[in-house]
Design a protein around this nucleic acid. Structure first.
Lengths: 179, 179
DNA sequence: GTAATTCAAGACACTAGTGTATGGTGGCAA
DNA sequence: TTGCCACCATACACTAGTGTCTTGAATTAC
């Protein structure tokens, strides 16, 4: 029987959070599914709070990393495409789970707000460079980011909006050419 | 000491759900805050599931009612304004709480999906009547509704988008005049 | 005014979860 | 090969929650 590291627990925690929601983040439940006892859990983590904090930290570092890779794209069109795609990407289900968790767990809620502020600022700076009427940039950025979060909340698969359709709408909204 | 009705419990449950999240929907906790014992709870409700079902039913009937009052407005501009305002209205915090709950409770999740489908259809029909290029109506409707949900998820107060700004963006998106 | 009904208190048994303390084991170093 | 240390099992005490049952009190009906 393979023994576990702290990171094994964290990664498994994120997986469970993503698929079942935070209500399943319990020492006993997780231990059983990892074929160990709670003794393992309490060796790696002081208590449940420490475990939660580790999950939050991991989520934040991943999310932050994604947002910061944005600068490598050139042109507002490409940047926006990339950002919208990023917020709709594979692990948007994890963020969705975190957002739900954030509604009842203050620490999580604060990280989510921090993430939103960061990304909104990025979107705003892009939009400002992209449109011709600067005083409209703030409303447009907020609306655009809200749409991204809405698509994530509703579930990309449920809404059924293709990437190209999405690109068309955004370009129309901002008066860009989809070149 | 005033005695309680079933509806007193339901209304109080919705209030707690809205403010503290569904993790506080426990017989003992609620009873204590209502200055009664759990005996009252279990007299009015078979068990916790029955109580949850009552909350879901109440939420649904209220939500459905709001959406169905839409027909009384005339003109796509007014209708959209009303709808966007409705999704941003006073009790959007309750819906937010329900959405978070829906992530870990199947019955709730189903009602939320049902609500989204209903409202999306309404938005689509409005948009279709409003724009000149019908083949774009679906993407535009989806995007618009997603933005509404995103604004609700992020929190109106946090985003800080005024009603008039919002109206301007939507009209621009659909090519309407804000007459 | 009395009886029936409605609402609630309180005690009980049960389950699920947390956190602690102590002891066991496998692998690596000296 | 001995011993140490990282990792885990197990047992325990404790808390919080569910749901049941019996009793009691306050309204309502008659």
């Amino acid at each position: 029987m393979k023994r576990l590291t702290k990171d094994d627990w964290v990664q498994f925690g994120l997986k469970v959070l993503k698929n079942e929601g935070y209500s399943q983040l319990k020492a006993g439940t997780l231990a059983k599914r990892l074929n160990v006892s709670r003794g393992s859990f309490y060796w790696h983590f002081e208590d449940l709070n420490a475990f939660h904090a580790a999950l939050i930290a991991e989520f934040w570092s991943v999310s932050e990393n994604i947002a910061s890779t944005l600068g490598s794209n050139h042109g507002p069109h490409q940047k926006l495409q990339f950002l919208m795609h990023a917020t709709q990407q594979a692990d948007f289900e994890l963020e969705r789970a975190f957002r739900a968790w954030g509604r009842v767990h203050q620490d999580v809620g604060l990280q989510i707000e921090r993430l939103d502020q960061m990304r909104l600022a990025v979107v705003h700076s892009i939009v400002k460079d992209a449109i011709e009427v600067p005083e409209k940039s703030e409303s447009l950025a907020k609306f655009t980011y809200a749409a991204a979060i809405g698509l994530m909340t509703l579930g990309k698969e449920k809404v059924g909006l293709t990437d190209t359709d999405l690109a068309g709408v955004i370009d129309a909204l901002l008066g860009l050419e989809s070149a």
